[in-house]
């Protein structure tokens, strides 16, 4: 029996833990971009307002927050214009939470297509993160527009400094973290659906544990300590520092977030990779 036949592929049971085929994923880059396009084109078809919804969601949330937290609860916003304060927090937070929640049901939502044809399963969550990135880009433009409006017509104060150049890094960190957490959950929910219930309100709770509707400086003592363990806190705080000049540049917080994000992503990819081979049997 000749052993030297050159097979192009060998289908085996489970791969090794770290046997992650990134080369294959790269070969399917066209597919990822087509998925992004599909998501973007299909979501707003047959809606009257179309992509305007991208503006309506954060604006209405901001207005609600403004009335509830600023006018009624009288939570301070560190002398920043409350509308801009909330809108900046919501815009960033939505990106993270969309990445997290939409990738977290990758397997269950795509069971139909995954059950019929093989392609690197990671293509799906990655495409979700990218299409949300486009959404984020549009919402950042909205934020800039509203900011200009507030500055010129309502005398709002902004104080942009050079750390604004860190914005792409901040966004990348949120993408990595959202993707990592999302694919961890997506792998676990294939077997235990209970987790998807947990996730929905878990993300909501997490928002209140992040300085979105209040500045970190508003908290003190133990609470302050706990909030600074939240890896999203430095992202929000650093953005507000860069844009409004409040707080300070928190380098150590960013390093912490970076390490956390990378660990979560690597863990996520490993778990996802484990599950993708056999999930069809449990879904």
């Amino acid at each position: 029996m000749s052993k030297d036949e050159n097979w192009s592929e060998i289908i085996r049971p489970k791969r090794h833990w770290l046997d992650i085929n990134l080369k294959e994923l790269w070969r399917y880059r066209d597919l990822i971009l087509l998925f992004v396009r599909r998501d973007f084109v299909s979501v707003y078809k047959q809606t009257v307002l179309g992509p305007l919804w991208l503006f309506i969601q954060p604006l209405f949330t901001t207005i609600t927050f403004y009335f509830v937290f600023s006018r009624i609860a009288k939570i301070p916003t560190d002398n920043v214009d409350p509308i801009l304060f909330y809108l900046s927090g919501i815009t960033l937070w939505n990106y993270f939470s969309d990445c997290f929640s939409k990738t977290s049901n990758t397997f269950v939502a795509n069971a139909g297509i995954f059950g019929k044809v093989y392609f690197p399963r990671l293509a799906t969550p990655i495409s979700i993160v990218i299409s949300n990135l486009i959404k984020l880009g549009i919402q950042v433009l909205l934020f800039v527009g509203i900011a200009l409006y507030r500055v010129y017509f309502h005398g709002a104060q902004i104080n942009i400094n050079e750390t604004i150049l860190l914005l792409p890094v901040l966004i990348l960190l949120m993408a990595i973290m959202g993707l990592g957490l999302g694919i961890i959950f997506s792998a676990l929910t294939t077997k235990y659906r209970d987790l998807s219930f947990l996730l929905t309100f878990g993300i909501q709770l997490l928002m209140y544990a992040t300085p979105i509707i209040y500045p970190l400086s508003f908290t003190s003592g133990k609470l302050h300590q706990i909030l600074s363990y939240n890896p999203i806190t430095p992202i929000i705080e650093n953005f507000r520092y860069a844009f409004f000049g409040i707080g300070y540049l928190d380098i150590s917080g960013l390093i912490y977030t970076t390490i956390f994000s990378l660990v979560v992503l690597i863990l996520g990819v490993i778990i996802f990779n484990r599950v993708e081979k056999n999930f069809m049997d449990t879904v």
Binding site: E5, N6, S8, I11, K116, Y118, N278, M280
Partner: peptide, 24 residues
């Protein structure tokens, strides 16, 4: 298993070239 939708529990399949299926 051949189309890699699910993986085998034991054993292996060796393939030369691309597989496509009219089932898809």
């Amino acid at each position: 298993i051949l189309s890699k939708v699910t993986s085998p529990t034991k054993g292996e399949i060796k393939i030369k070239g691309r597989i496509a299926s009219l089932l898809e």
